[in-house]
Design a protein around this nucleic acid. Sequence first.
DNA 1: AAACAACTGCAATTGGTTTGCAATTGAGCG
DNA 2: CGCTCAATTGCAAACCAATTGCAGTTGTTT
Lengths: 152, 152
Amino acid sequence: MKVPAHARAHKRQELSVLTGRLRGQSRKITGPRQAILEVLRRHPHPMTNREIFAVMPKGRCDLATIYRAMHLLEEMGMVKRFDFGDGAARFELVGEGDDGHHHHLICTRCAGVVEIDECFLREIESRIAARNGFKAVTHKLEFFGICPACQR
Amino acid sequence: MKVPAHARAHKRQELSVLTGRLRGQSRKITGPRQAILEVLRRHPHPMTNREIFAVMPKGRCDLATIYRAMHLLEEMGMVKRFDFGDGAARFELVGEGDDGHHHHLICTRCAGVVEIDECFLREIESRIAARNGFKAVTHKLEFFGICPACQR
DNA sequence: AAACAACTGCAATTGGTTTGCAATTGAGCG
DNA sequence: CGCTCAATTGCAAACCAATTGCAGTTGTTT
């Protein structure tokens, strides 16, 4: 059954479920990976690798290991990569059975993030695909503006 | 790769018009800047600084100068910055009186680009702004897929 | 033509990300 | 439980887009 998109931020997956997904793909459940998943499941918004590294108990994991883990998790579909245009990739945990596709509204002053759970472009996307003969069309979309707190 | 012509590419501005815009803002019309504008006006799709550099007659301009020029031109509103998610910024000339806002459909195999001249999100954008109390909301949107030629 | 600020080339630097390699460790197996 | 091996990790070096300091050059103004 499909999980409603708006449940994303509220549904925090158990660590055991997450590691189970690793095991299911015959990947090792290592200390660093558990630490990374632990961090991600506590954070509702996309994080840069450096942020993950900074938040993690010191010495649990090397920064390079985080980069490698994020590649793995992305390939497995466990995290989704987002690009806020500031040169650093951000990652967010994806719920089981979800493809993680959604968007964000980002404050350009304080970098605060609002999750936008709907996607308005599914239909437009297929129209564009058809019109141009493209297949497997996806899109990246983020909104930018100034949040209420930063307007004063 | 081959792409259909579109309205935007036909509005190729005269070099004299472009330099005139520089002059109007009391910026210097230098050799490197003319060379850069010359390259941009011949190319209908966004280019990376490195691509501009590669296409330019050798020795006409340093790569660092291109970076600086693109910042200037962007501030002046003469070029628009686009991000295709591959780590390199791309730039496209903006017509006079235009804000340059539009989107692209990018082939993930051959990197070919189709210009999408409409924008479907103006209304959704203001709805999102209102709902979250944000001001000055904009968005970045690009489509990705596999072009007809690359499907075989 | 002189004068000055804007601009450029070059080299060094930054910041995010990747990679080579030797050492470590998780998972299956006896 | 300990053994074995491939997967994984830490560390340092490398990479790449982008930025910057500085000294020399050039466009524009007077």
